[in-house]
Amino acid sequence: MRLSRPARGLLATITAVVLALIYLPLLVVFVNSFSTSQNLTWPPPGFTLEWWAKAFQSDGALDAVLTSLQVALASTAIALVLGTLISIGLQRFEFFGRDAISLLVILPIALPGIVTGIALNNAFRTGLGVQLSILTLIIAHATFCIVTVFNNVIARLRRLGTSLEDASSDLGAGIWTTFRLVTFPQLRSALFAGGLLAFALSFDEIIVTTFTAGSSVKTLPLWILDNLFRPNQAPVVNVIAVVLVLVSIVPIYFAQRIAGAEKVVR
């Protein structure tokens, strides 16, 4: 199939229009962060830098970002380990119940967050009798993050096949050595992609978080929710969002670099 010039042009136009639509609300957020209106009303009545100054003085916001980073890093790490184990198990072995397990992995993300949230809340509090804390939150996040790692890794494993691993063990390498020197390097970009998505999912999750975070744990989305209710804090929230979007370029860029570099090598 070879696309005609007009077809390519049409695709490019659609992409451009959708991208514009994707960035339109973000533009609103950006503009509102300089607006003198405290209630995010449009059009902005005036220009001010007050919210930017306030945002950078806000300890609450900084703490919340740090908490979210901790939670996202920890749950991503757990998801990376568990997700990789499951995908190797499911991809390299054939056994009874394989389908059930792949369903089990998908379930935490496929079931609506509120179901996961109240189920875990109920299990932690009344079932296990533990108090909600940052740990319960990490456990909950890791549970639904496993699937993003799993999806990426199993797709990669399927494409890789087993020939290189077989060669490695034929040459006398042990299981661990084979994994470390042969399998893992080939999985790296898949792990990175899955991990990044898991991180993003956890970082912005609010529904499960509402039900599983301890009272003193304030992740960024919870902080934002709180502050949207507080008098005169809404524009500060916009500033934080703008900063996050800008800062997020860095990890995404590196993820892309790694993925891109691998493509060239292959």
Binding site: I22, W42, A200, V237, I240, A241, V247, I252, Y253, Q256
Partner: peptide
């Protein structure tokens, strides 16, 4: 393009929903 698609994920869900409210 991948970066451009991924970036909005980092602007909080709530912030984006409120932005649509304004839009």
């Amino acid at each position: 393009l991948v970066i451009a698609i991924l970036m909005p994920l980092w602007a909080s869900y709530l912030v984006k929903a409120y932005a649509w409210r304004s839009v």
